[in-house]
Computed example of a mutant assay.
Amino acid sequence: MELLEQLCKIHAPSGNEKKLSEYLLNYIESHKVQWKTMPTVVYGDEFQDCILLIFGKPRTAVFAHIDSIGFTVRYGKQLVRIGGPEMETGYKLVGADAQGEIECTLHYNEEEHELTYEFDREIERGTELVFKCDFRETEETVQSCYLDNRLGVWSALQVAETLENGIIAFGCWEEHGGGSVAYLAKYIYEQYGVKQALISDITWVTEGVHAGQGVVISLRDSLIPRRSYVQKIVQLAKEAGIAYQLEVEGSGGSDAKELQHSAYPWDWCFVGAPEDHVHSPNEIVHKKDIESMVALYKVLMEKL
């Protein structure tokens, strides 16, 4: 869990993923020689802060977004949300501007719908603030800000260790409207002919999805994947004896929206562990669900 903790602490809100992208490139460079298959690492200006790992002869691509929710400093003490963070007075926020490091307190006025910060000076406009990381681990759970989606990234890195054929795509902007998966999907389809995807992200604990009962295979959220593809994934999970849960939601979304809306015939399925206290500093995931997530991804990348 040390790697996961490090990932959760890196400042990378939507639109400013550079630090995490650089960290991942360094991690990949130092670890890829120990992996079963040495990947081709694709990155550069034409991919902005995204990274592609190409293993062998790929048939399936895993998409994991590296950005997080947060806040942008507006004018005076005002804040504007990045994505959909929980807003509760007292949350600790951190960041930095030209005057130095920042640790301030979130203040939310529900009646006025006014979002501000409390700090001993005015923070420069445009500065991004994120939840202060307090990583907590027990025998059964991990708890921290930004398990969505640093856990999805961590899981993909575990899968990379034994992956022979496949693509892992680390994308940006998912929490605030997307934008990177469209050009990544175009490149992957045109260069490698790959048109089936798995979305390595974190979903919700709900009345029908419970912590500790296995990775979630989503039958739908605000979008509906092609049924035959999802059924194939469910069947592979059954055959492998991996604990899983089926999710049906009418809202929410992921990187899949750019695949479904693209001009290419992508099949996709959201496969990820469920968390509670979503989009807060206290996101919590059961370790059994993390284990089954990694196990299922390894099976799917081999069998799909």
Rank of each mutant, 00 (worst) to 15 (best):
L4M: 01
S200L: 09
I51G: 00
L198Q: 04
E239C: 08
H31Q: 14
G152D: 06
C133W: 02
D134W: 00
Y297R: 09
E175F: 04
I10T: 03
N165I: 09
D201E: 14
Y146E: 11
L24K: 04
K232A: 09
G84V: 06
G166W: 08
E118F: 01
L300S: 08
G253C: 05
D49Q: 12
L151R: 01
T162I: 13
A185W: 01
K195I: 04
V271R: 08
Y297I: 11
Y183N: 03
I233G: 00
K238D: 15
H11T: 05
E2G: 00
L198T: 02
E29R: 15
E239G: 10
L25C: 05
E103A: 14
Q231C: 11
K257D: 14
V62Y: 02
V194H: 00
D221E: 11
V181E: 01
Y189C: 07
T40Q: 14
T203M: 04
A237S: 11
H279N: 12
F47I: 05
E5I: 02
W268L: 09
K195V: 01
E124G: 00
E5N: 14
V153W: 02
L236C: 06
V42D: 02
L151S: 14
E302I: 03
A197G: 01
L53W: 02
H113V: 11
P58T: 00
V294K: 02
D97M: 13
I224K: 12
L3M: 06
A98I: 12
G214M: 08
G166H: 07
A211T: 10
D67R: 08
G126A: 11
L20E: 05
E111K: 06
Y75T: 09
Y23D: 01
E111H: 10
T116K: 01
R227M: 12
E164P: 00
E139G: 08
H113W: 09
Y264L: 12
R227Q: 15
E190V: 02
T206D: 12
R121A: 06
H31F: 13
G252R: 09
I242V: 13
M1G: 07
I168H: 08
L219K: 10
Q158W: 03
I284G: 03
S30F: 10
L93F: 05
G212T: 06
I217G: 01
A64K: 11
V130N: 03
E161N: 05
G44Y: 01
A243P: 12
H11M: 07
D201C: 02
L7G: 10
E88K: 14
T162R: 10
W266F: 13
D49T: 11
D148E: 05
S280L: 06
S30Y: 09
E112K: 15
Y108G: 14
E207H: 11
R74Y: 09
I242S: 09
D276E: 15
S21E: 14
K92T: 11
E103G: 13
L223Q: 14
C145Y: 09
A98F: 11
E101Y: 05
S254K: 07
F47K: 03
G100K: 07
C8E: 07
E275D: 11
R81A: 11
G15N: 02
S180N: 05
M38R: 11
L223W: 13
I199K: 05
